[in-house]
Structures are given as C-alpha cells and as structure tokens.
Amino acid sequence: MADEKAQKIIAALGGASNIVEIEPCITRLRCELEDGSVVDEKALKALGAHGVMRSGNVVQVVVGPEADTLASDIEDLL
C-alpha cells in the first residue's frame, strides 16, 4: 500500500524521469524536478498533501510527518 501511494506521488510529480532529487524534511518533500510546471497539484492534494509550494523547478509537497517514510518509499521506486 505504501508503494502505491509513493507510485502515485511519483506520477503526480511528472513521472520518475522528471525527478532529479527528493529530499524529506520532517513535514515535506523537497522535490527538484526537470520541469516543475507539469506537477499535478490536485492529485497531490487528493493523496493527502496539505499544500504544494512551487518555486520554479523546486516543488515542496507538504505531507506531514510521514515525509521521511514516503521519501524512502519513493526513492526505492526510482
């Protein structure tokens, strides 16, 4: 199940090929992307994200305290 959520987050971030780096920071995933404009904010929120902050190709997805676990689940899939 955890992998399913990670998989969906990857998809919402534009797929594995769009992800340069994902770094967890307690409450959020800091995602460095090839192209930040393709991020599906609605899908991320549907997956439980509290918020999505964009700054060019760096997108921060606020997921709450499960950020660490999610980031390692995502890294396993990349």
Binding site: T27, R28, H50, G51, M53, Q60, V62, G64, P65
Partner: peptide
Amino acid sequence: DPVFSQAMV
C-alpha cells in the same frame, strides 16, 4: 515559512 505560518501540519 508558509508550512508553519499557515499551520499546514
């Protein structure tokens, strides 16, 4: 930081 100032978590 909006994550904290907007009490997102």
